[in-house]
Structure formats: structure tokens, C-alpha cells
């Protein structure tokens, strides 16, 4: 699927729905189109480090094994550090900042500060500030719903709290990038289970009402139903034992999935389906999920 040639794609969703895998699959499919892609995780610890058995996940991009894109881990602190260093340009001051106990708690407490630092880094290429980032697309494996909402709300909150000075100015710039659909896209990942679907619809409504953003929705781990509804029904009525049980189970799953896909469609967009992939191998998972995303995008057009 061509994600409309945007430069930043935020991938979020409820915890445990497979955001990271979907983000990696998008990175792969976009890199296949010849774009220079960076897959960025946010936070203090890395999912991809274990996933790809990386020696180290760090603030500087490294190639993702077996893929043609790079991967990076950005934390609020590492981004703030870079930002401060870039602007103060004085190493002594910068050390004073980060080796100071009080400053450390300040960074932890100050609401929105690390969110602003992260968004500052992600949008730095478009805003043409800070050290250059040589990529056509940054796919951001964002936080889970609650924290992701706080992340997206941070510039607006900061703009309102602080109207003057560099922080106010930069927050306005970030807000402009976030709400520019030409430059920035949002992907919400759900499972076809009650809680993730409800959370996705809430997130989607929030993006629409507060930012005017219409996100794409991915339904992940969709159980592939091997036969048609009519066939399964017939089998369920005529077969015995295990086959009857199995077809009954599949009918149940089909009904639940259809119902929840219907719920997701209320967002006004057709969810892109990624099937449950019968493997635990990273390369197989990313490859097949990327293929499914490409197919899903095709029949949307």
C-alpha cells in the first residue's frame, strides 16, 4: 500500500495488538518501493532489539537485519539531550543539565517535555531544524493508545501554556506538521476483539475531533477462515466429532470477526486486514504482513 507518500507515519493502538510488527511491515513495503525508510521506536527499551537480535538499540540508526531500511530507538531523554546540545552548543552546559539530579527529575516531571522532545526529533527533517535526517519516510512505532494520545496532544498543550519563546514557537511548528495530512499519516492497529476495537474507535474519534486527522485502520491477526459461510454451516450440520466442532468454532470466529470489522468500518474507512500468520520467525512475519498490507491497500483504491 502506498501511504500517500507522506513523510511521517505514526503507528499506534492498544498494548499487545502487534503495533511493532505492523510498523515493521509498513517500513518494509515502503522500502520496497525504493524509499529511504527509518523505523523509529519510542521509549526507553526496544522491542526490535530482541525481535532482530540487534547488538544494541540506540539513538543512532542502524540497518534492520535482512531488510532494506534502518531502525532506531528514540527516548525523550536522548532526544532532549540532542536538542539541548544542538542549541546550547556548549558541552559544559549540556553536562550540567544532565548530570544534575534536579534537572533529571525536572525532565521526568515536566509534563510534555519529553513528548515535545520526541516530536521535535521526529518532525525535525520537515521543519528543517536540528541535525539532518536523511530519509524519505519515518515510520514511528508509537506508544500504546493512552500515551500516544498524550504525545499528540503535547504540542497543543505546550502552545497554550507557553505562548512566547522558542518552546512556544517550536510547538506551533510541530502542531502544523502533525495536522498536515500531506506530510503526516496515522495508522491505528486493532485486533478483532472487543477492547482493542473500542479503544481504536475512541482513538480515531479523538484524532478526528481534536486534529481533523483521519487515520488508517489495520485489523491485525485476523483468523483466516478456510471455507465459505455456507460450506462451514453445511459441515457443521452434517459432520460428526472433531470436524463438526472445528467448523462450529470457525463459524463462531467468523461471526465475531465480521461483527467487529463492521464496528471498525463505522470509522468511515475500510480496515486493512493482516491475517494471523502461522509463524514465529521475524522475517516470515514481517514479509507476510507487508504482503497483506500491500494487498489490502490495492483493493481499497
Amino acid at each position: 500500500m502506498a501511504w500517500r507518500n507522506q513523510k511521517i507515519l505514526f503507528v499506534s493502538g492498544k498494548g499487545g495488538v502487534g503495533k511493532s510488527l505492523v510498523a515493521a511491515a509498513i517500513a518494509r513495503s515502503e522500502a520496497k518501493r525504493g524509499r529511504r525508510v527509518l523505523l523509529a521506536e519510542l521509549g526507553d527499551s526496544s522491542y526490535y532489539k530482541d525481535f532482530w537480535h540487534l547488538a544494541e538499540a540506540s539513538h543512532e540508526p542502524i540497518p534492520a537485519p535482512g531488510e532494506s531500511f534502518d531502525v532506531v530507538l528514540w527516548s525523550g531523554e536522548s532526544c532532549l539531550r540532542e536538542y539541548v546540545l544542538h542549541y546550547l552548543k556548549v558541552d559544559r552546559l549540556y553536562r550540567l543539565f544532565f548530570e544534575n539530579k534536579v534537572m533529571r527529575s525536572l525532565i521526568n516531571v515536566a509534563p510534555g517535555l519529553s513528548e515535545i522532545a520526541l516530536l521535535g526529533k521526529i518532525t525535525s527533517g520537515i521543519r528543517k531544524t536540528g541535525p539532518p535526517l536523511d530519509y524519505d519516510l519515518i515510520v514511528v512505532d508509537t506508544f500504546a493508545t493512552g500515551h500516544a494520545m498524550a504525545l499528540f496532544r503535547a504540542p497543543k498543550g505546550m502552545m497554550e501554556a507557553i505562548r512566547f519563546g522558542p518552546m512556544g514557537h517550536q510547538s506551533r511548528e510541530m502542531q502544523a506538521v502533525l495536522t498536515d495530512a500531506e506530510q503526516t499519516g496515522f495508522v491505528l492497529v486493532a485486533l478483532l476483539e472487543e477492547l482493542p476495537v473500542v479503544e481504536t474507535l475512541e482513538f480515531e474519534a479523538m484524532l478526528k475531533s481534536e486534529f481533523g486527522i483521519v487515520p488508517d485502520i489495520v485489523a491485525n491477526k485476523v483468523m483466516p477462515i478456510p471455507a465459505t459461510h455456507a460450506e462451514l454451516t453445511r459441515l457443521h450440520n452434517t459432520a460428526q466429532g472433531g470436524v463438526r466442532e472445528l467448523s462450529g468454532y470457525l463459524l463462531g470466529v467468523e461471526a465475531r470477526q465480521d461483527r467487529l470489522l463492521g464496528e471498525l468500518k463505522k470509522s468511515g474507512r475500510k480496515p486493512i486486514e493482516v491475517p494471523l500468520i502461522f509463524s514465529e520467525k521475524p522475517e516470515v512475519l514481517v514479509r507476510e504482513a507487508a504482503a497483506a498490507l500491500a494487498d489490502g491497500g490495492a483493493d481499497e483504491k
Binding site: Y83, L96, G165
Partner: peptide, 22 residues
């Protein structure tokens, strides 16, 4: 004195209003 310098720099980066709230 050292920490004042830090605060001063923070003010440059964020603006005075932010510090007041804090």
C-alpha cells in the same frame, strides 16, 4: 550558582512562563 546557570539555559530553551508554572 551552577544550577542557576542550568535554570537560565532552560529558560532560554523553553521560555520564562514554563519555569513559573514549574
Amino acid at each position: 550558582r551552577g544550577t542557576r546557570t542550568v535554570l537560565k539555559s532552560l529558560e532560554v530553551l523553553t521560555g520564562g512562563q514554563f519555569i513559573e508554572e514549574l
